[in-house]
């Protein structure tokens, strides 16, 4: 069983567009970003299925097999 992690913008550098991680019981979004080497401070938005939010809200979210996690860095230039 896998977890699909779709990465956006600069998160793709050195990781690719989609990363497939092995699922394990109790796996959280925090476990996923740790495995990918992404710091929570670098993330603006995390979306998992119908759930979305900032890292503060989403890091403890427990994923389920075959879910897709979307990770976005902040874009704020003008």
């Amino acid at each position: 069983m896998k977890i699909n992690v779709k990465l956006f913008a600069t998160f793709r550098i050195g990781r690719g567009k989609i990363v497939y991680l092995d699922y394990y019981e109790g796996m959280t979004v925090k476990n996923i970003i740790d495995e990918l080497g992404i710091k929570k401070e670098e993330i603006a938005i995390i979306i998992v299925g119908p759930h979305d939010g900032t890292p503060e809200k989403m890091l403890t979210f427990k994923v389920e097999p075959n879910m897709t996690v979307h990770l976005f860095p902040p874009v704020a230039g003008g």
């Binding site: 913008a9 600069t10 603006a44 938005i45 979305d52 939010g53 900032t54 890292p55 503060e56 976005f72 860095p73 902040p74 874009v75 704020a76 230039g77």
Partner: peptide, 17 residues
């Protein structure tokens, strides 16, 4: 408020425009 936190800037600071 859902897409930004207390961040002052984003990836543009390293990538430019």
């Amino acid at each position: 408020s859902r897409i930004y936190r207390t961040l002052e800037s984003g990836i543009e600071k390293t990538l430019g425009n």
